[in-house]
Design a protein around this nucleic acid. Structure first.
Length: 844
DNA sequence: GCAAGGTC
C-alpha cells in the first residue's frame, strides 16, 4: 500500500480541450493549477484508490503522435511501385517541431499510474499505445497503465469511468496500424504508377498528380456515376390534363390525380371522355400538421448546410468552425453526436444567447414560456453536439465566420423551440369521371422557423371551397411535357453518400472532397455547389470500371473495414489479415499495370500527347530546336525532337529570359516569377532537372548555381546570408540575391525563403561593386543609380549597415535587433557557406 | 509530386 500523498498519476487526453474539460470534472471542487507547456498540464491533489492525496497531472496529445511512412529508400519515385507492397514502413512523429514525445517523457517521469483518456474509438485506442510507448520507459516500476472508457463528457459519466478503469485494447490499435499500412502502400503505389504513366504521355491533364486512394477514388466515383446517369438519360414525353376552374372570380389551377400518362392516345382518351362543363367539389378537408424541430447539430449536418445553404466549401467551413471553437464561440466542432446528454445545461446556453441583438428577444420568450428538449438524434459518446458557447454580435465576427456562427446559434435555438404547426387543406374536385385536387397550406405557429428563417414555409392559400358546389371550368387542355434528367450531385448530397457508405470520417470528408477538386477531377459549379466531373475524373473512373471495377466501388472501403474488425475483435491475427490484403492489392496492382492500356485508350481519346501540347518557348541545348512549354499542371518543357521532358516550378509565371543560354549545357534560360511583390529568378531547364554541382539539389534555379563566371549564378549575385538566418528558431539557410530579372524594378530576394525587398522606383540600375565587401558585416557593396529625372548621385554602400542605402529599399531588413544587441556596434558577419566565399574570392 | 487518420 502506497504512502499517502505518494501516488503520482498522469492522465492523457487526445486534445488540449478535453484535458481541460475532464480536469474540471475530476479535480475536487474543479480546482486545479495549469502549467503551460508543449500542451497545457493541469495539476491537483485528490484521492486515488487507497491514497487520499494522490498527485494528479492531466495533459494531452494533439491527435496522432505518429504518422506512418515508408523508409527513405522507398520514398524515392525512382523505385518500382510494385515493390512498395513489401516495402519497409516506419512511424514518424506527426509534428516533430512540437516535440510531443519529449513532452510525454517529461511528464511521465516518477509517475506510478498512467491513465489514458483518449477518444473512445479505434483511432483513440491506437493513440493510447503511441502514448504508452513514450511514457512507460520513464515511469516508476512497476508501471500501472489504465484506460478510461467514457461515453460522454459529463460529471457522472467521467466519475463512472474513473471507477471502472480497464486496460487499453491492443487489438483495436493493431487494426488501425494495419489500416494505416494498407492505405499508404495501396495509395502510394497506384498514385506513383498512374502519375508516371499518364503524365509521361499526355500534356493537358492539368493535375500535379494522378492520385488514387481508398477514400478519394470512391468519392470521385459518386460524382462520375451521376454524370453517367445524366449522359445516358433518355427523356420521355408525357401528357397530363391541365384544368383551371373559376372560384370567386379567380382562376384556380387543379392537379390531376393521375398526374401524367406516358401514352399520348390514352391521355387524349381521358381528356375526350370528359363531357361535363362544370367541376364539382367532392370534399374539403383541413388537417393540422406539424414539422418537427431539428435535432442538435453534428459535423456532417453543419457541413451540408454550409455547402447548400451558405455556399461555403466543407474544408473552408471546418477551418472557420475550428477558429470559432478556439476563440470560444462554439463547442468542439468535430462530433458525430446529434443528441444532448440528459444532464446538458441547455438553459445557460439559451441565457447566453438571450444577450444577442438579433435573436435575444426570441430567447427571452423561450426562457419565459419554457423551451423544449430536442428530440431525435443519436449520442455517439464522442463530444456534445455543436453548440454556441459565447454570444457574438454581427460586426464582432465577419463574413462567412459570422454566417456560420449565425447558423450554429439559430440551429441550437431552433432545436429547443416548439414544432412548426400548419394547416393543410385539400379540396377534391371532379370533372366528369376524372378526379382533381387543389391543395393549400397555412402556417399556424412558426415554432423553430421563427428563428431558423431558411426553414420558413410560405403560405399557399386556396379559395374557400364548399362541398357539393359546382364551379365553371376556365380551361381544360392536354399539356405535353418531357421527363428531365437528374442534376449533378450537390456537395451536400455527396457528403451524405460518403457518410452512408462509410467513406472517410466527419474529420476527413472535407479533405477528400477538397482533394478531388484540387487534383482537377471535379469542378464545383454555381452557388448550389454541384460537382461536375472533368474529363480526367471521368476517364479515371471509367478506366477502373474497365480494368477492375472493385478499385472504385464505394463498398470497397466498408468491406475492408469489416475485415479489419476481425483484428479489432481478436478473431484474426493482425499479421495474417494485413498480409492477405497486401497480397490481394499487390495482385490487383499487377493486373492493373498489365491492363492499363484499357484505361489509356480512354485517355488517348480525350487528351493530347506531350508532343502535341504546349507552345514553343525555349531552345533545347541538345538539338537546338524549340521546346514546348506546357502551361497546365504540372508545368514543364517538352522537347519533341529529343522526346525529353523538363519539369519547371509551379504557381508562377514562366517566360523566356532574353534568349540567354546556360554556359554549362547551352539550354535557353527561362524566367520564373511570382508577381511584382514576389521572388523571381532565371532557370536553366536542364540544370533544374539535372543539377550541375554536387551540392545542388534537383529543382533549383540559377539563384542556387555555383558557377563562378556565369552572370546569373548565385555566386555572382549573392550579397549576404538571408536576414532570416539570424532567427533563433529555424534559421533560414538561404542567401540574399540581387535580382535583375524584374528590372527596371530591382529587388533583393532570398533564394530559400520568401523574403523580398524592392528598390524604390526612382532607382534605375543596381549593380555589385566588384571587390568590395562591407567591413562591418561582410555584405557585398552595391551601387544604386537613380533615374535621370532624379538628378541624384549614385549611392554606394551596404544594404545592411548604411542608412542611405537602406533607405532605397521599400522594406528594410530587420537589422535593428542586431544594433540593439550590440549597443550600436555592428556585429561582424560571415558567409554561411565558406565554399561560396572562396568561389567568390577566387572569381575576383 | 503519393494515402488516410488524428488535431492546431
Amino acid at each position: 500500500m502506497p504512502e499517502a500523498g505518494k501516488t503520482r498519476v498522469l492522465m492523457v487526453a487526445e486534445k488540449p480541450s478535453l484535458a481541460e474539460s475532464l480536469s474540471k470534472l475530476l479535480a475536487p471542487g474543479g480546482h486545479y493549477e495549469t502549467h503551460r507547456r508543449t500542451t497545457p498540464v493541469h495539476e491537483w491533489t485528490g484521492p486515488f484508490r487507497s491514497d487520499p492525496d494522490a498527485k494528479f497531472r492531466f495533459t494531452s496529445v494533439t491527435g496522432h503522435v505518429y504518422t506512418m511512412d515508408f523508409t527513405s529508400e522507398y520514398n524515392s519515385w525512382a523505385i518500382e511501385p510494385q515493390l512498395l507492397f513489401s516495402g519497409n514502413v516506419r512511424k514518424m512523429e506527426s509534428n516533430p517541431k512540437m516535440k510531443l514525445t519529449q513532452h510525454l517523457a517529461n511528464e511521465a517521469k516518477n509517475v506510478d499510474v498512467l491513465i489514458l483518456w483518449l477518444d473512445c474509438d479505434r483511432e483513440g485506442e491506437n493513440i493510447c499505445f503511441e502514448v504508452i510507448g513514450n511514457c512507460k520507459p520513464f515511469m516508476n516500476k512497476p508501471a500501472q497503465i489504465l484506460r478510461a472508457k467514457f461515453s460522454a463528457i459529463t460529471a457522472e459519466e467521467v466519475r463512472r469511468a474513473m471507477h471502472n478503469l480497464g486496460t487499453p485494447n491492443e487489438n483495436e490499435a493493431k487494426a488501425v496500424d494495419a489500416r494505416q499500412e494498407l492505405d499508404l502502400k495501396v495509395g502510394v503505389a497506384f498514385t506513383r504508377f498512374q502519375t508516371r504513366f499518364f503524365q509521361g504521355k499526355y500534356g493537358n491533364l492539368d493535375s500535379t498528380v494522378i492520385s488514387y486512394g481508398p477514400c478519394q477514388t470512391p468519392t470521385l466515383s459518386f460524382c462520375v456515376e451521376r454524370h453517367d446517369r445524366i449522359q445516358s438519360f433518355q427523356p420521355e414525353p408525357f401528357w397530363a390534363i391541365a384544368a383551371t376552374i373559376q372560384k370567386d372570380n379567380q382562376p384556380v389551377p387543379l392537379a390531376w390525380d393521375r398526374e401524367r400518362i406516358f401514352d399520348r392516345q390514352v391521355a387524349h382518351l381521358f381528356l375526350n371522355s370528359i363531357e361535363s362543363k362544370n367541376a364539382t367539389v367532392l370534399s374539403v378537408e383541413t388537417k393540422k400538421k406539424s414539422r418537427q424541430r431539428p435535432h442538435a447539430l453534428n459535423t456532417v449536418e453543419l457541413l451540408k448546410h454550409c455547402s447548400s445553404g451558405l455556399g461555403i466549401s466543407p474544408s473552408e467551413s471546418m477551418s472557420i468552425a475550428e477558429r470559432l471553437y478556439t476563440q470560444g464561440y462554439i463547442s468542439y466542432p468535430r462530433t458525430e453526436t446529434s443528441r444532448y446528454p440528459e444532464s446538458f445545461d441547455l438553459k445557460s446556453v439559451l441565457q447566453e444567447q438571450s444577450k444577442q441583438a438579433n435573436w435575444g428577444q426570441y430567447c427571452d420568450e423561450l426562457l419565459q414560456n419554457g423551451f423544449q428538449r430536442p428530440t431525435g438524434g443519436t449520442d455517439v459518446g464522442d463530444h456534445p453536439p455543436i453548440t454556441p458557447m459565447r454570444v457574438a454580435d454581427e460586426g464582432e465576427l465577419y463574413g462567412d465566420t459570422w454566417r456560420i456562427y449565425d447558423f450554429i446559434a439559430r440551429t441550437f435555438i431552433g432545436s429547443i423551440s416548439s414544432n412548426l404547426q400548419y394547416a393543410s387543406t385539400t379540396a377534391k374536385i371532379a370533372i366528369g369521371d376524372e378526379r382533381f385536387e387543389c391543395k393549400g397550406s397555412q402556417t399556424v405557429a412558426p415554432g423553430f422557423s421563427a428563428v431558423m428563417h431558411w426553414l420558413k414555409t410560405p403560405d399557399e392559400p386556396i379559395p374557400e371551397f364548399t362541398k357539393g358546389e359546382t364551379l365553371p371550368i376556365v380551361s381544360l387542355t392536354l399539356r405535353e411535357g418531357k421527363t428531365s434528367p437528374p442534376d449533378y450531385l450537390t456537395e451536400a448530397e455527396l457528403i451524405g453518400l460518403m457518410e452512408q457508405n462509410g467513406i472517410g470520417t466527419d474529420a476527413s470528408i472535407p479533405t477528400h472532397i477538397n482533394n478531388i477538386c484540387q487534383r482537377n477531377y471535379v469542378n464545383v459549379n454555381g452557388g448550389a455547389r454541384r460537382l461536375v466531373p472533368t474529363n480526367l475524373g471521368i476517364v479515371l473512373i471509367h478506366g477502373y470500371q474497365k480494368i477492375d471495377p472493385e478499385l472504385s466501388l464505394p463498398t470497397m472501403r466498408s468491406d475492408m473495414e469489416q475485415q479489419l474488425n476481425l483484428i479489432a475483435s481478436g478473431k484474426a491475427p493482425q499479421k495474417e489479415v494485413l498480409q492477405y490484403f497486401l497480397d490481394m492489392f499487390e495482385s490487383k496492382f499487377a493486373y492493373f499495370v498489365k491492363h492499363v492500356e484499357s484505361m489509356d485508350e480512354l485517355f488517348e481519346a480525350t487528351f493530347s500527347t506531350l508532343a502535341a501540347s504546349g507552345k514553343p518557348l525555349s531552345k533545347c541545348g541538345k538539338c537546338k530546336r524549340y521546346m514546348k512549354y506546357i502551361a497546365l499542371k504540372p508545368n514543364r518543357l517538352h522537347c519533341p525532337t529529343c522526346d525529353e521532358t523538363y519539369s519547371l516550378p509551379m504557381n508562377g509565371n514562366i517566360k523566356l529570359y532574353r534568349e540567354l543560354r546556360c554556359p554549362l549545357d547551352d539550354f535557353e534560360l527561362v524566367l520564373y516569377s511570382t508577381g511584382s511583390k514576389g521572388t523571381g529568378f532565371p532557370i536553366c531547364p536542364y540544370c533544374y532537372n539535372h543539377p550541375p554541382f554536387e551540392d545542388i539539389k534537383k529543382g533549383m534555379g540559377c539563384n542556387h548555381c555555383l558557377h563562378p563566371t556565369c552572370a546569373h549564378s548565385m555566386v555572382r549575385n549573392a550579397i549576404c546570408p538571408c536576414p532570416e538566418s539570424e532567427q533563433e528558431v529555424d534559421p533560414c539557410q538561404g542567401r540574399l540575391i540581387l535580382d535583375a530579372t524584374s528590372a527596371p524594378r530591382w529587388k533583393l530576394s532570398c533564394n530559400e525563403c520568401n523574403i523580398v525587398s524592392t528598390f524604390l522606383d526612382t532607382i534605375k540600375h543596381v549593380n555589385i561593386v566588384k571587390d568590395e565587401i562591407c567591413e562591418d558585416c561582410g555584405t557585398v557593396i552595391l551601387k544604386a543609380e537613380f533615374r535621370e529625372n532624379q538628378n541624384k548621385q549614385p549611392v554606394i554602400g551596404c544594404v545592411m549597415c548604411d542608412e542611405e542605402m537602406e533607405a532605397l529599399l521599400a522594406t528594410r531588413f530587420a537589422r535593428k535587433s542586431v544594433r540593439r544587441k550590440h549597443h550600436g556596434k555592428r556585429r561582424r558577419r560571415k558567409w554561411v557557406d565558406p565554399k561560396v566565399r572562396k568561389l567568390y574570392a577566387d572569381m575576383r
